[in-house]
């Protein structure tokens, strides 16, 4: 446990002193701020009646900042350190690969969630600053949607960060790691929807495939969370996926040092 704490403190310290952390944070907050402003703008369009609330629309495009930020915060974790030789130097001390993977995961996940917590300031700022917003609290600051959406980005985020680390453990090039991460995230985001679309053409075990496709459909889970319903099945899906990705990353890192 001591080794894990030392590694985690080091990772957090590196995040705090590295310029790229602040650049990534600025990009993320700029993008989420723009997306919130855009959602707000759409919601005020008089031609759209009964559409989603700004917060629902905003969380609906959570994948855009995810695709930008997660490769940025995970690509160097193993790929960059392996190329520079730092990973080898690290493993010359009595550390275990899973301790290193876990420390990097917790640090990256912490940073990812910190950015989302900061991003939640946008709806709060709109609520406090826009004239008359406090009279329509259900529209601008719907608490169940906000909490549900946050739980969703927190749980799905763990899988996506772990996937980014797995991508980084597969290669020595940070660029390749980022591209692998983006491809893997796109696959995770769209696998359920794609399976549902191609299912009628498969002609075999249609119900089985449909059930699995529905289970993998990220946006169906998101829809439930945004209605304030916290379902345990997606929590299990994202949790087990995170464990699997971290386990595989540990195996690859062990052979990479």
């Amino acid at each position: 446990m001591r080794t894990f704490r030392v590694l985690l403190a080091h990772e957090l310290h590196l995040l705090a002193i590295t310029a790229s952390t602040y650049i990534a944070a600025a990009v993320f907050l700029g993008l989420t701020g723009f997306l919130y402003w855009f959602s707000l703008h759409q919601a005020t369009d008089p031609s759209v009646n009964g559409g989603p609330t700004p917060v629902q629309s905003w969380f609906g495009v959570f994948w855009v900042p995810a695709l930008v930020i997660i490769p940025q915060i995970t690509m160097r974790a193993f790929a960059g350190e392996s190329r520079s030789g730092m990973l080898g130097a690290l493993f010359s001390t009595p550390v275990r690969p899973f301790q290193v993977v876990c420390a990097k995961f917790v640090a990256a996940y912490f940073f990812h969630m910190l950015l989302w917590v900061l991003a939640l300031l946008f709806p709060l700022m709109a609520y406090w600053l826009l004239p008359g917003a406090q009279h329509s609290a259900d529209g601008l600051l719907p608490l169940p949607t906000l909490l549900g959406g946050f739980v969703f980005v927190a749980t799905s985020g763990s899988l996506y960060v772990a996937t980014g680390l797995l991508a980084s453990s597969l290669t020595r090039s940070t660029l390749v790691a980022a591209l692998l991460c983006i491809c893997a995230l796109l696959l995770l985001l769209t696998a359920g929807s794609l399976l549902q679309q191609i299912n009628p053409g498969l002609h075999v075990a249609t119900d089985y495939v449909a059930a699995r496709a529905s289970y993998l459909d990220t946006f169906r889970h998101l829809d439930l969370f945004l209605r304030g319903i916290v379902d345990t099945r997606p929590l299990f899906l994202f949790g087990s996926g995170t464990m699997l990705a971290l386990g595989l990353a540990t195996l690859f890192v062990k052979n990479k040092a």
Binding site: L14, I17, G85, M86, A89, S92, T93, P94, R96
Partner: peptide
Amino acid sequence: ESAKMHLGYMPENNPLPED
């Protein structure tokens, strides 16, 4: 892990964190 407790190793090119 036990063996590494007794070992100090400086790899070739000595990679160090720049920051």
